[in-house]
Design a protein around this nucleic acid. Structure first.
Length: 423
RNA sequence: GGUGAGGUGGCUGAGUGGUCGAAAGCACAUCUUUGCUAAAGAUGCGUAGCCUUAACAGCUACCGAGGGUUCGAAUCCCUCCCUCACCGCCA
């Protein structure tokens, strides 16, 4: 969430920067401001009264020790007590309301973030490789997957409904090989620590990373236990340090985690019509960093480079775009998307979204670090997919398909897959 | 799931209704002294909020969480959570 002091001191600047996002947040900022004023007035009054009560209660203790009658003075404190209760309720209500409001206001886009209103205005940052040429009509991964008995969409529907899939045979093995290839790359070449977190988390975690309270309809929830299925490993992994004060030496923190991800995709158009591209459950290797504010922008570049390395090693053509202010996520202050080319689709597919959240998530989860002067400061959090598996699977299979319907395994993956081709 | 024990500051640990935000020790920081790969002493050393300031200071809250009793709660009562041990069940 945003720093209330920033809103208090420079409300117009805050509103101006939020105005570049999609959605209107000016009225929320106004409301936070007026609640904050009320809250502080009530808080000040409460604290003054509490001080009075503490002082007089001490006097009662002393008087009683001296054997004096204290009934009059006790009655006086009783009046103060009921007043404290009254004003305290006001303060608590205002405090809760203020927190709710702050949790509903998105992060400020970074100064570097290109201004724009829709995805069409996202600038292309760079392109790697080029679209492969085929002397035959490249097939869609659903066709290839069915022919090679790798993907069974009917079985997914039978077991769990639309937008679920069963990987089988070489498909299941390819998925597994990709996971271990990605984890090995990031842990041995890029310096990340591997994390295997719980897939069910408490609501506090989702508040911490920003999915709650606004996007509760997008996550699966087990009401009986009040636990949520993670929509991304970002949630449990970033929250590893919720409510902690990290020593400076521990920064930057670099974590890589493979997990399945679960998304309800409520309101998404085209669910279930395009093979693996948008599923309720998909695998992903996520990269998470916690850094000092001074280094976060450089770390965003290296995080993005780490994710790009995956596609480079697999020889997949991709481009990097930067999201404009109208398209970045709720908690993000700057985001790069990596889109891989899928020949069978004839489109680019987003396989990674690399963002810095500035101190936005850290403030929500009360995460801090001690700086060189021993002062508590708020670190920056970053994350990016390194990469999403289902779409990577699509790009890989479609890119390396051969005229005879078989699929070549790129060299970098052969050690993990244990064969040179499928089919 | 059952029974028992317990949750106090970075750690250990005292504190069962009244100057307790909390003794003591350890760790840590600064300073002093002696000197040499260490010792002694002094001082300081939690988090958040409010109010202020050039800066300091001051006030309030926090002893697992929430509620209750009371003029006053770390301390008494209730509910919940967690940890440990043993038992049961189980991949």
């Amino acid at each position: 969430m945003l720093d209330i002091r920033l809103i208090r001191d420079t409300p117009d600047q805050v509103k101006q920067r939020l105005a570049n996002r999609s959605g209107d947040f000016a009225s929320l900022v106004d409301e936070v401001q007026s609640i904050d004023t009320q809250r502080r007035a009530a808080e000040t009054e409460r604290q003054k009264l509490q001080g009075d009560r503490n002082r007089i209660s001490k006097e009662i203790g002393i008087a009683k020790k001296n054997g004096q009658d204290t009934s009059a003075i006790e009655a006086e404190v009783r009046v103060i007590g009921s007043r404290i209760e009254e004003i305290g309720r006001e303060a608590d209500v205002a405090d809760a309301r203020q927190r709710d409001l702050l949790l509903s206001i998105p992060n400020l886009p970074h100064e570097d973030c290109p201004v724009g209103s829709t995805a069409e205005e996202n600038p292309e940052v760079r392109v790697w490789g080029e679209k492969p040429a085929y002397d035959f009509q490249p097939k869609d991964h659903t066709v290839l997957g069915a022919a090679l008995r790798m993907l069974d969409f009917e079985a997914g529907v039978k077991i769990s409904g639309s937008a679920f899939v069963v990987y089988r045979g070489a498909g299941a093995k390819l998925e597994r090989a990709l996971i271990s290839f990605l984890l090995d790359l990031h842990t041995t070449q890029h310096g990340y620590e591997e994390i295997s977190p719980p897939l069910l988390v408490k609501s506090e975690c989702l508040v911490g990373t920003g999915q709650l309270p606004k996007f509760g309809d997008q996550v699966y929830h087990s009401a009986a236990d009040d636990l949520y299925l993670i929509p991304t490993a970002e949630v449990p992994v970033t929250n590893l340090h919720r409510d902690e004060i990290l020593p400076l030496e521990k920064l930057p923190v670099n974590y890589a985690a493979y997990t399945p991800c679960f998304r309800r995709e409520a309101g998404s158009a085209g669910l279930g019509t395009r093979g693996l591209i948008r599923m309720h459950q998909f695998d992903k290797v996520e990269l998470v960093k916690i850094t000092t504010p001074e280094t976060s922008m450089a770390e965003l570049e290296s995080l993005t480079a780490n994710a790009e390395k995956v596609l480079q090693l697999l020889g997949l053509h991709y481009r990097v775009i930067e999201l404009c202010t109208g398209d970045i996520g709720f908690g993000s202050s700057k985001t790069y998307d990596i889109e891989v080319w899928a020949p069978g689709q004839g489109t680019y597919l987003e396989v990674s979204s690399c963002s810095t959240f500035g101190d936005y998530q850290a403030r929500r989860m009360n995460l801090r670090y001690k700086d060189e002067n021993g002062k508590n400061r708020i670190p920056h959090t970053l994350n990016g997919s390194g990469t999403a598996l289902a779409r990577l699977f699509v790009a890989l299979v479609e890119t390396y398909q051969q005229a005879d319907g078989s699929i070549l395994i790129p060299e970098a993956l052969r050690g993990h897959f244990g064969a040179e081709k499928i089919g």
